[in-house]
Design a protein around this nucleic acid. Sequence first.
DNA 1: AAACCGGGGAC
DNA 2: GTCCCAGGTTT
Length: 363
Amino acid sequence: MNRKDGFSQAILDWYDRNARELPWRRLGGAHPEPYHVWLSEIMLQQTTVVTVKPYFNHFISRWPQVSDLAAAELDEVLTAWAGLGYYARARNLHKCAVAVCHNYGGSFPADEAELLSLPGIGDYTAAAVSSIAFGKRAVVVDGNIERVVSRVYRIADALPQAKPVIKAHADVLTPSDRAGDYAQALMDIGSGVCTPRNPKCELCPVASFCDGFSAGDAETFPQKAPKKKKPTRKAHIFWIENGRGEVLVRRREESGLLGGMMEFPSTAWQEQAPVPDEVEALLTQIGVEGTSKPPVTTELVRHTFTHFHLELTPHVVKAGEAGGSGSNDAFWLAPDAFSTIALPTLMKKVVQSVFKGQGSLDL
DNA sequence: AAACCGGGGAC
DNA sequence: GTCCCAGGTTT
């Protein structure tokens, strides 16, 4: 086995020459604030830098210290998080802020194991915060680093079984000094150079250490287990408008899909198309009846979640004079106030469909 | 170990 | 359309 001596130094040299400024990053040896590192790492889970930037800046501006975030209402945090996805991250973010203030006096712990015990912080984030914010040596492994390491060592095992093997190799490569810079550099290289397809090996500072490059098959790593195909679910969703131009909105259950976020009432999301009876039952259940005119159907809304496709047929319903106030926590809200509630992207697509269908273009 | 959990960008 | 992502939690 070749020893890869000089690997981490080549990575750090590349970082010193190529690292870009980021709102949560400090160049030149200074450590960023742990609060900033933690917030950015949570946001960056399964999410790109370009997407995260404006959200990060907004959060820091609105809640400058972790104590400010801890003092916020969960609903405020969900509203600010709307559009980022994986909403359990936002619920755990708030929980973690409270825990840091309650258990650590508002200062994040530097120790990896202590960080790991906090809500929403797993192996990756604990190692990232400990090394980037506190300069501790920690073995940081994310999807990018997995790819780089599996190519450097031509690891034959398929993911996710290969994870422990990759971690062990990553440990050997990780330097004692500047482990945080090293991790960020490796992730930058993974996302920009050692890409999933068409890797730019000619730009890679560690091509000379890479077994995959030497063998000419770097792109075939990491090996992956085959994945299932996603089923498609369908439902009818209702834009119910009262005489004042307000629309009926309700909050989803606290856990599970889009947990705690807002939605327009809909039939159940099922693989079999809903029958008209279900539509009647829904309208009765939410307290809207006696619609004189048939619903106006607007353009189909398509959306893909982690494990299924969804097709929603939106209907515009004019509620009767009484209007019905909704049985289960539903309430009326004017469309120009939608930006003040935790509306996920799927529901914003429904809004767009309805406005498009009505020919008006506010939003 | 496998399932669950969004959204967007690259191709 | 497919694949991937600066993953963590739950079962």
